[in-house]
Amino acid sequence: MLVSAFMIIVLTIISACGSNGANSDKTANSQTPAPTAVEESRTITHAMGETVVKGTPAKIVVLTTQGTETLLALGIKPVGAVQSWIGDPWYDHIKDQMEGIEVIGDETQPNLELIANLQPDLILGTKVRQEAIYDQLNAIAPTVLTENLGDSMIENFELYAKALNVEEKGQQVLADYNKLIEEASARLGDKTKLEVSLARFQAGKARTYYKQNFAGVVLDQLGFARTEAQNKEEFAEEITKEQISVLDGDVLFYFASDRSGETTASDTAKEWLADPIAQNMKVNKNGQSYQVDEAIWNSSGGIIAAKLLVADIEKYFETIKP
Results as ranks from 00 to 15, higher is better:
M1V: 05
V3M: 14
S4V: 01
A5L: 06
T12D: 01
I13L: 09
I13Y: 05
S15N: 06
N29V: 11
T32L: 12
T32I: 05
P33I: 07
P35S: 14
T36C: 03
V38C: 11
T64M: 02
T65Q: 08
Q66M: 08
T68Y: 07
G75T: 02
V79S: 07
G80N: 00
G80C: 02
V82R: 02
Q83I: 08
D92S: 13
I104D: 10
G105D: 00
Q109A: 09
L114K: 15
I115A: 04
N117R: 14
Q119P: 11
D121F: 07
I123S: 01
G125R: 11
K127S: 09
R129P: 01
A132T: 07
A139Y: 07
T143M: 09
T143L: 04
L145W: 07
L145C: 02
G150S: 15
D151H: 05
L159Y: 13
A161S: 12
A163N: 13
L164D: 10
N165T: 05
V166Q: 13
E167F: 14
K169I: 08
V173Y: 15
D176S: 12
D176C: 15
Y177A: 11
Y177E: 09
N178W: 10
L180C: 07
L180H: 14
E183R: 06
R187N: 12
K191F: 04
K193I: 00
V196S: 03
S197N: 02
L198D: 07
L198R: 11
R200A: 12
F201D: 04
A203G: 05
K205I: 13
K211P: 02
G216K: 06
D220G: 04
Q221R: 10
G223H: 01
F224L: 06
T227F: 06
A229L: 11
E233T: 15
E233G: 12
F235T: 04
A236H: 06
E237W: 00
K241Q: 03
I244A: 11
V246N: 07
S260N: 14
T268K: 15
E271F: 14
A278G: 11
Q279N: 10
Q279W: 14
N280H: 12
N280G: 14
N286H: 12
Q291I: 09
D293Y: 10
I296S: 09
W297G: 01
K307I: 05
A311I: 05
E314N: 09
E318L: 13
K321V: 15
